[in-house]
Amino acid sequence: MNQMPTRPFTTGPAPLTRRALAKQQTRQRLLAAAKQLVTERGYEAATVRDIAAAADLSTGAVFASFSDKAELFNEVIIADYAALLERMNSVAAGENSTHATLRKLLALAYEFHAGELPLVQAVIGFSWQRDAAIERRNREGVTLILARLSEVLRGGVESGELAPTLDIDLIAEMLWDSYVANYRRAIFDGWDLEALGDRIANQIDVLLDGYQNAA
């Protein structure tokens, strides 16, 4: 009589082949090197050659993983948004109002980028200048954060704190517009985290003021 096979079914992703693993490691190294060099020198001055050298790889290895510098940097940005979202999700809400939760999340975002303002500067400058395909991919990163902000606003509407007439997605976008615009104050005027946090708090006030139900 035949034995039933005893080996259990494997679950989860198949283990990477050695080659695929090496490729992924190369990619990670390039992303880290690109992030560091752009933070130090700015986007234009960080050349593909220098990025490859910093990652201890050949220039050809860069183009085996990314179509060009723009795509490489865009992937740096997307990884950064994903990491920020993870941070946002790891803080328990625990605040007693929508306003306070939004403030906490955006203050966290400022804190997250505090040590790397030149990178933020490069990211914002970059976002205006690239072609439509890159721009759309870049948008995917921002969309993650916008969805998080919308979720908080939706919670406020559901709990009756905010009026149901509030246009959730429009407010989330405008909140993000103000959040990004405030970086100018940090970059050009040396504003610190506290000043940025106070400013975004005022902006949240103005944005939500027309939709606040009486407590």
Partner: peptide, 9 residues
Amino acid sequence: DVMLASYFW
């Protein structure tokens, strides 16, 4: 400020 931030963005 909020209006101009959205205007540019």
